[in-house]
Design a protein around this nucleic acid. Structure first.
Lengths: 224, 224
DNA sequence: CCAATTTTGTTCTCACGTTCACAAACTCCT
DNA sequence: AGGAGTTTGTGAACGTGAGAACAAAATTGG
């Protein structure tokens, strides 16, 4: 119903509205909110129009009211239990990330296959063996899983998650996951993001085949 | 020239080709590569066609040759020096991430504003004060900066980076950055990704307003 | 050497997303 | 009360991206 591109922006609007509310602002125009969210106002208004008519013409939007409506639409008015698998450097960082809890997500378990990690406490949660996944998913009715393992383990973890009933996966491992129909996967890939930047950087730097290093090397003349 | 959507997929193809090469495969069809990369073959062929005609009809693609061509197009045949600012949990994880170095990115400096962190060694690199940014950017000719600070510091860091000549920024802070024309920013936002999953999860769970928690609460009847 | 087969590269069509532009609706001031 | 000024919500135009379908070019077997 709501276009995917719009869904991806709603959390941005939500965050911008929270920032406005923290500054004591109670009403804002689409122009205000758009600039806080880093989009143009036409797109913002169109996005919001998919949710309903929550603004007032000639006035703007009530910050708290709109914030609640977006939160409800996204589904972050309730708490979502989340399991993190793979407690390496990244898993540690994710477990400690305060942005999860403050936005309706509760880390109910940290799992790892490495026996050396089991029993350690990270961000106030004890690391459990991966085999506890089934019990945890059943007990807490977990629908969302986070994969922060090395690439070689990611597909196995995903398969087990799906078998246990998890239907949404956030994947940080640099691997392509195959999952059945009905399971959503979102991928966050750090090195891919850098590579995209590198591509544009290379084009800025001078067109041909030169990166920063090559550009420096080019100063010693063309004919070697 | 090359569509943005295609640019975003080239690193995926590159990784899939590397995986094929590691398995000793020297030639592959568009079908093979597409399934390894998780896209359909028509899209893959169209993407590759923007780079040139590097395949052979009736045969397929030479894995090593295509890999080199994509790497050259992206610009990862050379090393890109990278600065990471903000050495908290996430900064630690990024500094230790092996996927950077193996893909043409070299972390030349770790910076933080917290005096308590200065001098510590993370992933073999000493943490330096943020004020060293200018010298580092000049010395190493850094074009790409990574921001892993808290949200409130992100815009300041970005401004300083831009002033020092950095033209590509990868931002992990949950904040909207404003930068001048000509500077590229890519955003990675963990909680937004989860919120997008939550939206779809909510729709799967039963349509109306119920998340996992609400679904459980709903069992105690509608009229309170 | 020629026909059959395979697989790429490309064209065409359709769907999606973005932006512009404007009518509808509300407030404020006289 | 009524007009001037704001600001939303939306219809229409435009641009980009995805997918199907097919022609061109290579290999293979006789």
């Amino acid at each position: 119903m709501i276009p995917e591109a719009t869904v991806a922006r709603l959390p941005v609007y939500l965050r911008a509205l929270t920032a406005l509310a923290d500054n004591g602002i109670r009403t804002c125009s689409s122009e205000d909110l758009a600039s806080a969210a880093g989009v143009n106002s036409a797109k913002l208004r169109k996005d919001l129009s998919y949710l309903g008519s929550y603004g007032t013409r000639g006035v703007g939007y009530d910050v708290d009211y709109l914030r609640y409506q977006i939160a409800r639409e996204i589904g972050v008015t309730q708490d979502w239990p989340v399991v993190i698998v793979g407690i390496g450097n990244l898993g540690h960082a994710l477990a400690n990330y305060s942005g999860f809890r403050s936005r309706g997500f509760r880390v109910v378990a940290l799992l790892d296959a490495d026996p050396a990690l089991i029993g350690q406490t990270v961000a106030g949660v004890e690391v459990q063996p991966f085999d506890d996944l089934e019990e945890i998913v059943r007990t807490h009715d977990v629908a969302i899983g986070v994969i922060a393992t090395p690439a070689f383990a990611a597909q196995d973890v995903a398969d087990r998650m799906v078998a246990m009933g998890i239907t949404s996966i956030l994947n940080f491992a640099p691997a392509v996951l195959t999952v059945p129909e009905g399971v959503d996967v979102r991928k966050v890939d750090l090195s891919i993001e850098l590579q995209i930047l590198a591509y544009h950087e290379q084009r800025k730097a001078g067109g041909a085949t030169q990166g920063a290093a090559a550009a420096a090397a080019a100063t010693d003349g063309g004919a070697a």
